[in-house]
Amino acid sequence: MVRQIASRLFYAIVILLGVILVVSSLVKLVPGDPVDVLAAGNPAMTVADMEVLRERMGLNRSVPEQFVAYLGQAVQGDLGTSIRQGVPVMTLILERLPATVELALWAVVLASVIAIPLGVLTALKRGTWVDYVGTFVAVLGVSMPGFLLAVLMILWFSVELRWLPASGYRGSALAAFGQAIIERDPAVFWNAFRYFILPAISLAFVMIAVNARLIRSAMLEVLEQDYITFAAAKGVPGFVIVIRHALRNALLPVVTIVGLQLGALLSGTVVIETVFAWPGIGRLAVDAIHVRDYPVIQAVVLVSALLFIVINLVVDGLYRVIDPRVRDD
């Protein structure tokens, strides 16, 4: 066990080093640099001032030198200072990351609550109208881009019906839930949670389609196994067979895909955060790219990669909880 954990941690460190090296190299290929952007907004800056500023920022160093310097700072928890805002990058990440994480969690919860029953139901009702409706939902979810669904929901639920806000963020819904319990006022939770509904649905729609079909396929395969037939012959109730025996064994591939989806959501909510003016790390990355804020770009990619790796390690651990037969090679 210790050897397996050490091996996985070693590979994780290698991946992080590779991510830092690639990002350090790619951002230098973008035309212009942060000094050019700053000079455009400050006509009084001379060429000599620009060179001094490049030297101070370390932009004149080679890629290997910048990589080693950045790596040494990152190990100490220093991800640099934002060129545009002049504050530590870690401060910006910690301010924006909770909004992205909570939005991703709500999207995963929503997708799981809908996809698992839908996948089980379509498997049990194979070939019926229920199965056909599930297939339609799956095709629609995979075919429709998230940003298009987001715009359509804004036009309908925000502009036409005025039920939900079109954009914005009013703090953590989870924190508001605890406060609502203490104050015994559901409005406290609703005032924060309603800002999560449209962006969470936009992110969850594709996940619902994919996961429902995955669960359906896994359930159909499990239901044909001999131990399911044996349990039915023993007189085990159908509900127990479906939930305890079939679904439990069908969840293993679902856990894998959900882990990957959660990692993708944490690092890839750029479009949805832009559409809904969501103050997450995706929007932070877009703003940093516009002004060539290299430290912020590198930090966002590094944090996203780290979260992705951690989630995959957690998924590996869940394998043993769901199916004790699974053993690491």
Rank of each mutant, 00 (worst) to 15 (best):
S167N: 15
G171P: 01
W190E: 01
E160Q: 09
P186R: 11
S172E: 02
S172M: 10
A166M: 15
N191R: 15
I181E: 01
D185E: 15
P165T: 07
W156C: 07
L164Q: 04
A176G: 06
S172C: 10
Y169C: 04
A175D: 12
R170K: 15
Q179I: 04
S172V: 09
G168S: 10
R162T: 10
L161V: 07
L155S: 10
A166N: 05
Q179S: 11
L155G: 01
Y169V: 13
P165N: 09
W156D: 08
S172H: 09
Y169R: 05
L155K: 09
F157L: 14
I182H: 11
R162P: 03
G171H: 02
E183K: 14
E160F: 06
A166K: 10
D185N: 15
S158Y: 07
G171M: 03
A173S: 12
A166D: 03
Q179C: 03
I182A: 14
S172F: 11
A187Y: 07
A187Q: 14
S167V: 12
R162V: 11
A180N: 04
L155E: 08
F189R: 01
F189A: 04
Y169H: 03
S172N: 08
L174H: 00
L174V: 15
G171K: 01
W163Y: 05
S158K: 04
W190T: 04
D185C: 09
V159Y: 06
A175L: 15
I154K: 04
L155N: 10
Y169K: 05
R162C: 06
A173N: 04
R162W: 09
P186S: 10
I181M: 14
V159T: 10
W190V: 07
F189Q: 01
A187C: 05
L155R: 11
F189Y: 02
R170E: 14
L161M: 15
A187R: 13
I154T: 09
V159S: 07
V159G: 00
L155I: 09
P165K: 08
P165L: 09
A166T: 12
A176M: 06
A175M: 12
P165S: 10
W163G: 03
I181C: 05
A180Y: 04
F157M: 13
F189K: 00
I154P: 02
V159A: 11
N191W: 05
A187D: 08
S172K: 09
F189S: 00
W163A: 14
G168R: 05
F157E: 05
W163E: 01
S158G: 08
F157P: 02
G168D: 04
F177H: 01
I182S: 13
E160N: 07
S167G: 09
A175F: 08
R170I: 02
W156E: 04
S167H: 15
N191A: 15
V159K: 02
W156Y: 14
A180M: 10
A187T: 14
G171W: 01
E183V: 13
I182L: 13
G178T: 06
I181A: 11
G178P: 01
L164K: 03
S172A: 12
P165H: 08
W156R: 10
S158F: 09
F189P: 00
A180C: 07
P165M: 08
G178R: 03
